[in-house]
Amino acid sequence: MADLKIKINQLEFKNPVLTASGTFGYGLEFDDFFDVNLLGGILVKATTNAKREGNPYPRMAETASGMLNAVGLQNKGVDYFVNEIYPLIKGYQTNVIANVSGSTIEDYIVVAEKMNELENIPAIELNISCPNVKQGGMAFGTSCASAQEVTKAIRKVYSKTLIVKLSPNVTNIAEIAKAVESEGADSVSLINTLLGMAINAETRKPILSTVTGGLSGPAIKPIALRMVWQVSKAVNIPIIGLGGIMNATDAIEFFLAGATAIQIGTANFIDPTVSLKVVNGINEYLDRHKFASINDIIGKLEVKN
């Protein structure tokens, strides 16, 4: 049994397998299938200041090796989260991390301040990369200046571990990563979904109500790996890698590219128990290759000079 423990900032994780925000509900939806406490952490669904109804239906389109979604951050707002959801999930014996989103910097600040008060939420993931909202979201994550501005504002009010989730819909993701690192982000997670679209040729109409949506699943894995690799060369803070991870082998590839932890997203929809299988598969890989710790393979891609 290899040592799977990792650290991000001062926060310890029993293993490097987390579940991606928006794909794992509040964890409760998966209690029937396995003990979610066996995971390194759970990134719960995005929370905004005010209640959001999200986008109209249809919100989903299946594509080759992936799917597009246009959910649009549907949630009941931060006060509902604090009063109704938090009591249900605060007992989890794993790191429960809130995903914080907003339309304005003030919105982000309100949510982050309230999350800061919750004892059993040891970290937040700042979502500056949602492609499915008209205002805010990805707009904050696609320029260095705005990414810096929102990170700086949140760093002032949030004292625990701050993860910033980056958008792949940029020319140079490493520059954005450096920008948020310079403002005190403790970690970056990448990638959020890629902006895409799907068309029904027969009806000559878009499939999604919003025309465009966020592409996830194995279709985006090569891009995610490339971006983790590029960011790992540019920053010193730990990277949480995600994008199309379906099994332990995929996860190992992200560690080799430079990720300290990984998140499982779309795969949860197909096999609700997949994240636990990935934990076990990583352990098996480390034993088979005689590595004592997960830390022995992080960033250890062997590239010929």
Binding site: G22, T23, F24, M60, V71
Partner: peptide, 17 residues
């Protein structure tokens, strides 16, 4: 009927008004 991804309330794709 609705287009679903997860079927267990995790993805919020299959909403109706």
């Amino acid at each position: 009927e609705n287009t679903m991804a997860c079927g267990i309330g995790a993805c919020l794709c299959c909403v109706t008004e």
